[in-house]
């Protein structure tokens, strides 16, 4: 069956099976491989994207459920070639090692900071607990999120 949605600001459509997951549609039909797969029980968060402005695990959504929706993936975060402040934060604070969890972490962080622009350490840790990272021990991820929050606050104050 045919699905269409807005992905990173562009109208995209494709042919899928009813059982096709959104993550597979993004990766296989659209070639947006920045969204990763780390599990099959919705535990790891590597597949996190934004669906109508909210962070969701794209392995928990069928492609057909996203028909007509507005989707943002990691590929849509940088604007005009400039890294998003959260992407910058992860780079500045060494918030990634292998980088596999990173796109999902960044998408979750974006949602977190939208809801809570100035989170405490505990709120950050709680906010990203649905995203697993096996490399960093999370410490530099927490700092990356704080860096991004500071930068975004400074920008919105401009």
């Amino acid at each position: 069956m045919q699905v269409s949605m807005t992905v990173n600001g562009q109208e995209r459509s494709g042919e899928v099976e009813p059982r096709t997951l959104l993550v597979h549609f993004l990766r296989e039909n659209l070639g947006l491989t920045g969204t990763h797969i780390g599990c099959d029980t919705s535990q790891c968060g590597a597949c996190t994207i934004h669906l109508n402005g909210k962070a969701v695990k794209s392995c928990t959504v069928l492609a057909v459920q996203a028909n007509g929706a507005d989707v943002t993936t990691i590929e849509g975060m940088a604007k005009d070639g400039e890294l998003h402040p959260i992407q910058e934060g992860f780079w500045e604070e060494h918030g990634l090692q292998c980088g596999y969890c990173t796109p999902g972490m960044i998408m979750t962080t974006a949602d977190l900071l939208k809801r809570n622009p100035n989170p405490t350490e505990a709120e950050i840790r709680h906010g990203i607990e649905g995203n697993l990272c096996r490399c960093t021990g999370y410490q530099h991820i927490v700092k990356s999120v704080q860096w991004a929050a500071d930068k975004m606050a400074a920008q919105s104050g401009d």
Binding site: G34, E92, G99, T102
Partner: peptide, 17 residues
């Protein structure tokens, strides 16, 4: 800071799948 990171934070890593 790591030179590996710009492509990885953009989702431009090339992993197996």
């Amino acid at each position: 800071k790591r030179r590996e990171d710009p492509r990885l934070v953009r989702g431009q890593g090339r992993y197996m799948d």
